[in-house]
């Protein structure tokens, strides 16, 4: 960071340090607040203390005691993983074709996928609702997986084709000359080099599916396929007059955990500059 401003002076270092701290605090306080809320008991929930006076796991016990949340968690995990896997596999193939081949209609394909990415999702909700109802997909896993793939694919294709374009084409030619079939060249040379791109894309797509609220609330009606963001909105207190904030906070903490794990697990593989050294440089 200091490199941008030229020489690294102590004053500059301090300046950046302070700025970074401010940004990090600004971003983290709401998260910490949610965590704090989730550990408060229902009595102290609204006392306004940042650090809970008495720690309690009451909220966590509550959300896991009914199937409302656990079932939604299973739905969320299942739907997001399946949609991610399919989108990444098709995205990889499409991106490879776009980056490497010249075929008629290539620009059209890229244009259409861009169009889909830019389409306001909210305008599609009603038609999708009608279509899914008449096809019997309403309130099922495929009913959510399909639109997720539709909207995740352009994202996947864009990210991945940028990665593929960075892999020198000569590597593939070299593999062919070394006696590889196109399949072997892809598997043993191109795929390992594209892996960081694939993981990055997988994370992005997974987060997109995991966080979606709009489709999930419009295209589901029961616990059978309701995902966590939607289930959260259906939380109620034990009585009509009780604020479910504690449970919502606990659930919010729980659904953040998979994302953190996902990113931590894959970030090692997102090593920039893996392709350096392939060609002259």
């Amino acid at each position: 960071m200091a490199g941008i401003g030229g020489a690294e002076t102590p004053a500059k270092k301090w300046g950046w340090g302070v700025l970074n701290t401010v940004v990090v605090i600004y971003a983290l306080i709401p998260v910490l607040w949610i965590v704090s809320l989730s550990f408060k008991s229902s009595k102290t929930l609204a006392d306004g203390n940042f650090i809970p006076r008495e720690w309690s796991l009451e909220n966590y016990q509550n959300i896991f005691s009914t199937s409302e949340f656990t079932r939604a968690l299973i739905n969320s995990i299942g739907i997001a993983i399946i949609a991610t896997a399919i989108a990444v596999v098709f995205g990889t193939m499409a991106a490879y074709a776009i980056a490497r081949l010249d075929f008629p209609g290539k620009n059209l394909l890229v244009g259409v996928s861009l169009l889909i990415a830019m389409f306001p999702q909210v305008s599609l909700v009603s038609p999708l609702f009608e279509i899914e109802r008449s096809l019997g997909l309403f309130d099922t896993w495929p009913g959510l997986i399909l639109p997720y793939i539709t909207f995740a694919l352009p994202l996947a294709i864009y990210t991945l084709s940028a990665f593929f374009r960075e892999i020198p084409w000569e590597l593939e030619k070299a593999a062919k000359m070394d006696g590889a079939t196109p399949g072997q060249a892809f598997r043993r040379v191109i795929a390992p080099l594209a892996a960081p791109g694939v993981f990055t894309t997988a994370i992005l797509v997974f987060i997109f599916c995991w966080n979606d609220f709009l489709f999930a609330i419009s295209l589901t009606s029961t616990e059978q396929s309701r995902t966590v963001p939607v289930a959260l909105s259906f939380f109620t207190g034990s009585s009509q007059f009780e604020d479910p904030a504690g449970s919502i906070a606990a659930a919010a903490v729980v659904i953040t955990i998979p994302i953190i794990i996902f990113v931590l697990f894959f970030q090692r593989r997102i090593v920039a500059g893996l392709t350096s050294g392939a060609v002259k440089g």
């Binding site: 030619k173 070299a174 080099l193 392939a278």
Partner: peptide, 20 residues
């Protein structure tokens, strides 16, 4: 014949070494 069946080796201008 595909390149792999011609049994010839090639050295590229960019060397095209496999970086991984």
């Amino acid at each position: 014949k595909a390149p792999k069946d011609r049994d010839i080796a090639m050295v590229f201008q960019s060397y095209a070494l496999y970086p991984h």
